[in-house]
């Protein structure tokens, strides 16, 4: 595991170098690809964190975009209102170190607020199982979106401009690495095997002294924390956020990434997140060529059609996802728990 820490450190250093020397160049010369790059980074964070809940712990949360929204708006509001003051305190807006520090603070606030929301939503709802939890979390996501739509100081339906624009390659992929490290570190410890026992058999887990509700809540809170940070990265990248950016379909996006990647495989989920960010773009560019008749362009540009097709294809041929284990899937699809001994 010290090796994992070494990898984390190495990747962070590499990212830092890339970010310091290459960021400008990529962002200016290849703006389109830069956009895809950052978006895939944010999607990796979302998918890997959701995988802790939906994959490793075997719950079904459909509200990840809700936590992302909490983070995005929290970070946006915080930065809009407090950054000028904070920056003037520690060295001005032109100082890169100062602006990065301010961003860390803003992300921290976003993550924390999302985590608290996760705790508040999780404690009552994680007593529910399966479909019920899915419905409650779906409802939660909609409540957040509708609440923002009706809160004037958050811009309501007009959206919120976010000042700062701090998001860069270092933070996006650094957080993605940190998120993967956290999830893997947790899951591979004796402590973290508890998450998997909750997925496999709750009755047996409780009989082995494992407080399954506590594990579910922890998974939920950790996932919400990273979703919040992903929201902050998104807000500072787009510089303009609307409630529609965090609707139900955003949650579905992330769930699809987790399912295609293979529930409970961090590597698979990372790959799926990147692939599913790039694929719609590829199809879009395909629709601009003459290969495809114009009548079908709409089909290619609609990512939901792509997702459905991929899901059907995967469920038929590889139900365990890109990297997931077949056993976990069979168990989930198998008999519901029966409380006899």
């Amino acid at each position: 595991m010290t090796r994992a820490r070494l990898y984390l450190l190495l990747s962070l250093i590499l990212l830092l170098l890339l970010s310091v020397f290459g960021e400008r160049l990529i962002a200016n010369q290849f703006a389109y690809y830069y956009d895809i790059l950052i978006t895939s980074g944010i999607n990796v964070i979302l998918a890997v964190s959701l995988n802790l809940v939906n994959g490793y712990t075997g719950q079904f949360s459909l509200g990840h975009a809700g936590f992302m929204a909490v983070g995005a708006y929290a970070s946006g509001c915080w930065s809009n209102n407090l950054d000028p003051m904070l920056l003037s305190l520690i060295g001005g807006s032109t100082n890169p170190i100062a602006s990065n520090l301010v961003f860390v603070l803003s992300m921290g606030v976003a993550g924390l607020l999302a985590a608290i929301t996760g705790l508040l939503v999780g404690i009552p709802s994680l007593r529910l199982r399966g479909d019920y939890l899915a419905i409650v979390t779906l409802g939660f996501g909609e409540i957040i979106r509708t609440a923002i739509l009706n809160l004037d100081f958050l811009g309501a339906s007009r959206g919120l401009s976010v000042s700062g624009g701090y998001t860069n390659l270092f933070w996006t992929f650094g957080i993605a690495a940190l998120c993967s490290y956290t999830v893997l570190g947790l899951v591979h410890s004796t402590y973290g095997r508890g998450f998997l026992t909750v997925r496999d058999d709750e009755v047996a887990a409780e009989a082995m002294g494992i407080n399954t509700t506590k594990y579910k809540v922890i998974a939920f809170v950790v996932a919400a924390f990273f979703a919040g940070i992903a929201g902050a990265l998104y807000a500072h990248f787009k510089a303009f956020i609307t409630p529609e950016g965090f609707n139900f379909f955003r949650s579905v996006d992330v769930v699809v990434m987790v399912i295609l990647g293979g529930m409970g495989s961090t590597t698979g989920v990372c790959l799926a997140a990147i692939l599913l960010t790039i694929l719609p773009e590829l199809l879009r560019s395909l629709s601009h060529t003459s290969i495809v008749p114009p009548a079908y362009h709409g089909l290619l540009e609609n990512r939901l059609i792509l997702y459905s097709l991929l899901l059907i294809l995967f469920m038929l041929t590889r139900p365990q996802g890109l990297f997931g284990s077949r056993l976990a899937v069979r168990k989930r699809a198998g008999t519901p728990s029966q409380s006899d001994g």
């Binding site: 095997r193 998997l196 026992t197 496999d200 887990a205 409970g264 168990k331």
Partner: peptide, 8 residues
């Protein structure tokens, strides 16, 4: 009816 953690 054996209840092991089947994915472990």
């Amino acid at each position: 009816n054996i209840r092991l953690f089947s994915s472990l």
